[in-house]
Structure formats: C-alpha cells, structure tokens
Amino acid sequence: MGKEFLGEFEELVLTMVGVLGEDAYGNAIVTEIKDRVGRDVNLSAVHVTLYRLEDKGLVKSHMGGATNARGGRRKRIFTITNAGLAMLRAMKEARMDLWKLIPQLKIAGG
C-alpha cells in the first residue's frame, strides 16, 4: 500500500467500521470498541479519526435517514472502501508474515 501507514488507533477504528458494516457511525463505534476490546475511547477522537480515514480514502460516509431518536439528527454512516479493506488485509498479512518469523516454542521431549 505504498507509503500509507495506519496508526494503531486508526487501524482499530477502520476495523470496527468494517465490522459494523451498514451501522457504523461515531457512537456505535465507541460502544463497539468498549464491548469488544474493553477500551474506553473518546467520541471526539473517534470522529477525528474517521474524518482522517475518509481523507485517506479508506472509508466513505453518507448521511443516514432521519430517526426519532438523537433529537432527530441524522447519523453520519461510514462504510469501508475497497482501499480500506485492502489496507486492512495488507496489514494483517504483513503481521502474519512477521509473526511466522518469531521462533516458535518447541515442545521438548520425545
């Protein structure tokens, strides 16, 4: 993926966008991270990261439909792009390659 690299938090958010599919918006991502990884993250940090990912072309966003909840405000729904998926995949593979290079613990004995 050229020179583009993702930070750890960016990767986490990007992954969550992929996980949540059509339901990925700021609050949902915060809740999801809390539930799955057990990490308290700040809403504003998630938003800023999402916008940055959008700038990089890894996610795209559109406004969802109006609801009665949220004071009638629409959600900004993020979806992962092909570039985003490719990036995630590339990162995962690169990590796996590296992982394989770590000397594995051999079971002693016969």
């Binding site: 918006y25 700021g26 609050n27 915060v30 938003h47 909840a69 949220r70 405000r73 629409r74 900004r76």
Partner: peptide, 15 residues
Amino acid sequence: YLYEGIEGDLLEQYD
C-alpha cells in the same frame, strides 16, 4: 457539514 452527525452522536450519548 460535520455538525449534524456529531451533534446527533452527542445527543444519543446524552440520552
């Protein structure tokens, strides 16, 4: 252009 999405998230959290 970002305001509505952010405000919505904030209100949801608030509720």
